[in-house]
């Protein structure tokens, strides 16, 4: 009886305090923790979504962004960075949030269409103007004298896509098998003098610091470099086979429930699938899922042979255990240059 009385009293008081102190105020803050090359895309997207949300709900929305290597970003969220939404490079990184941090359910990927990947990209080569080293396909990257720039697969989601695209190419060659693919990866990384922690860092190394002959990059990042960072200084080479990169998005349930941002966070990720969201993604060189938008950008995205993680490698969990876990294939094959 006594406890009931006290709890009711406290609840009533909390309601009164929330009311008088303006806890129902319409200023909302959202944090999107994302991977490295999405800065520009989400800057534009956030403006559009905040406007949409204002019209829909009347709430004023401030969306903060955090960017870095996808694996590093996931670790930050696990360690307490209060992300309402994560938009990372790999499903594996969000799986880690679900499994290790219990921050969202394990079936998070089923909550949104297309395995929670509202846009896709692929992996291409960015070479210097005139392609002086004659780089046209993956075998050209392991030639003596070719310097390759790619970030560290231990910290960068983009780097994992790069690695897996190369590995997948080697597997799919006539007579290709795991042994040959490992040899190929070993030779490739012999030509990599520096491992940046994220994709944007690798772009900086190649584009602004002038290091290397070829950058293995997200398609969107390569187009961005081509059109906006170093106009006329680079060329894009699309290899004969590459990988379909599906960067996923998710609402971080535990955070949004505690912060009371569940509805707006859900609307945020859903807005990525709308015509407006897809248009912004395409303008930032991500391949849109929505056919009506994709039709308008066919010239921007060349058709090439694409493998997927699931069909070529059996899914991210298997990929991680085999290739990127501590002591995995990458650790065995990569010898840092001296």
């Amino acid at each position: 009886m006594f406890l009931k009385l006290v709890s009711r009293g406290l609840a009533a008081l909390a309601l009164i305090v929330c009311w008088v102190s303006g806890a129902n105020a319409k200023d909302i803050t959202l944090l999107n923790v994302s991977y490295d090359p999405t800065r520009e895309f989400y800057q534009d997207f956030n403006v559009a979504f905040a406007k949409y949300w204002k019209e829909k709900s009347g709430d004023s929305l401030t969306i903060k962004q955090s960017h870095g290597g996808s694996g590093k970003q996931a670790r930050s969220v696990l360690e307490g960075l209060e992300a309402d939404v994560v938009t990372l490079a790999l499903a594996y990184d969000i799986d880690a949030l679900a499994e290790k941090g219990k921050l969202l359910p394990k079936d998070w990927q089923t909550r949104l269409p297309n395995n929670s990947s509202p846009y896709t990209s692929t992996i291409v080569f960015l070479v210097r103007k005139g392609n002086p080293k004659g780089i046209h396909d993956w075998p050209d990257l392991i030639k003596t004298g070719v310097t390759v720039i790619t970030p560290n697969p231990k910290t960068s989601g983009g780097a994992r896509w790069n690695y897996l695209a190369a590995y997948g190419y080697a597997l799919r060659q006539p007579g290709g098998d795991d042994t040959k693919a490992r040899e190929f990866i070993k030779s490739l990384f012999k030509n990599v003098p520096i491992l940046d922690t994220g994709a944007r860092g690798a772009t900086t190394t190649f584009v602004q610091r002038g290091i290397g002959d070829v950058l293995i990059a997200w398609e969107n990042e390569a187009i961005l470099a081509l059109k906006e960072i170093g106009k006329g200084e680079f060329e894009i080479v699309t290899p004969s086979l590459t990988i379909l990169a599906e960067p996923p998005v998710a609402v971080v349930d535990k955070v949004v429930k505690r912060r009371g941002t569940e509805a707006v966070a859900k609307a945020y990720v859903e807005y990525l699938y709308t015509e407006a969201g897809q248009e912004i993604a395409a303008k930032h060189y991500y391949r849109p899922r929505l056919e009506s938008v994709a039709q308008r950008y066919t010239a921007q995205f060349p058709v090439t042979k694409l493998i997927t993680i699931d069909e070529a490698f059996g899914g991210w969990q298997k990929v991680h255990a085999t290739h990127f876990a501590e002591g995995g294939l990458f650790d065995q094959l990569y010898q840092p240059s001296r």
Partner: peptide, 9 residues
């Protein structure tokens, strides 16, 4: 350049 970039990193 590589040495400088490594130092930067």
């Amino acid at each position: 350049k590589i040495l400088e970039r490594k130092r930067e990193l």
